[in-house]
Design a protein around this nucleic acid. Structure first.
Lengths: 138, 138, 138, 138
DNA sequence: GTGGTCTAGACCACA
DNA sequence: GTGGTCTAGACCACG
């Protein structure tokens, strides 16, 4: 995995890192059990402070995307979200509403938004298992 | 239009206000030419600092959603944007990628994301005019 | 609310702080909407580094116990946990199993453990609302 | 006795091992005088570093759960503790308070916590001998 | 070697 | 004033 950050971007560096990890997992480039770069290594590679990487990994840990084991490293979990259904749906609705509203103000029409979504969905390696509307067991 | 803020939300108040205006415009609840509440009025109504409302209006002005007319107030301009095509495309792709990646980690599958998007698109009053891929003339 | 920390304890300082806040909320000493001491104030009071307080507040934020609003402060949320049922039950079972096992090795019998639990439960101000086995809506 | 470790758990491996031994003793699956697997054997079985097993056994030895006999191995001692009464009481109170506070924030009510405790107590094989509040003579 | 905790102090953004 | 981000660097605990 190759990560990169833009220190001048509005988005905080730690979020850039966290999101790139999430993206790599979603695209199947990293799988459950895979080890992430060590905090020090990644900090060196990205030319940022180790604490910044720690914060990114903190976020991922809190969301259950990775686990950190002292002395061993950080690993992608196979675990699903621990969020409840209500919280999950609320979150998805907020994400989608944000996207649609911004797209509107960017001058896009519904077809274009759908098309962009379809394109983005193709990048993601969803589990083959059928998923109902209800939350995956955790 | 009725606006409201949630003082127990993590999102900054100025963003809550700005996003509500954008949403109202996108849903057709506010139309081009409509006047927004005065800064003082809205600040009183929401029980927030006037500077916070000013900041929200600043953001909307910067994005071209509203215009300030000296002494007359702020008015909705319609869904214009000052961004170039490349920037627009990039922004849309980023929004959609964010949504898809987060949805993946929430345990949703592609069908559910599409469904949520379709639902959200129905709330928005897109202009009837056909829109090409290129930005509307401004 | 009065907080205190023991810098020599095995438990990290940030956890001591976080747990004390949780305890204050559970005992009803702090209610939803109440403001916590500012990061700088609490750091000064406890004679610890502000970043340590930040970390404690980070934990509480991640667990949904408090929210932090830039420029405004940190506030107790009224929100319930966003965890799913499975995760909640697993967590409770782990807590109780830990307690029972340790109590056994401390030489306590079942009656004494139950008694200690009853005593501890009396300190907590549970909501009057009936709670079923299923998760509170969020 | 079968032990196992979860390499994708946040809990340090040595603690996982130590707690499993404690649990096995509490459930009566291991009795005073029983011999534990040798460090080398267990390390091979669990595919972990022998030093990790050593550390787990160290912890158990320090808590009086097992004893090392030179050249013979480690043996379960029974549920002894070297702590004084005050320390024991304090420890139990802390364990129970932790459980109750966390349970509150998980959204559980007093009845559910008691029920969970009762269920957990059933798994443990307490000695038939009556136990007073004071520590068993050692 | 790994991550975990804590300190110290700078600079920015929100209300 | 508040919290948010980032840097720099110390020391400890796990494997």
């Amino acid at each position: 995995m190759l990560f990169h950050v833009d220190p001048l971007a509005a988005e905080p560096i730690f979020e850039q890192i966290a999101f790139q990890v999430k993206g790599a997992v979603a695209r199947g480039e990293m799988k459950p059990g895979d080890r992430l770069p060590s905090v020090r290594d990644l900090a060196r590679t990205l030319a940022v402070n180790p604490n910044t990487v720690v914060k990114a990994y903190d976020v991922l840990t809190a969301e259950g995307v990775i686990v950190r084991r002292q002395g061993a490293g950080c690993f992608v979990t196979g675990a699903e979200t621990t969020l409840g259904d209500a919280a999950r749906e609320k979150r998805l609705a907020a994400l989608v509403e944000r996207t649609v509203t911004e797209a509107y103000h960017l001058g896009y029409g519904p077809a274009e938004v759908k098309e962009a979504l379809t394109r983005a969905l193709k990048e993601v390696r969803f589990p083959k298992a059928a998923r109902g509307r209800s939350r995956r067991s955790s």
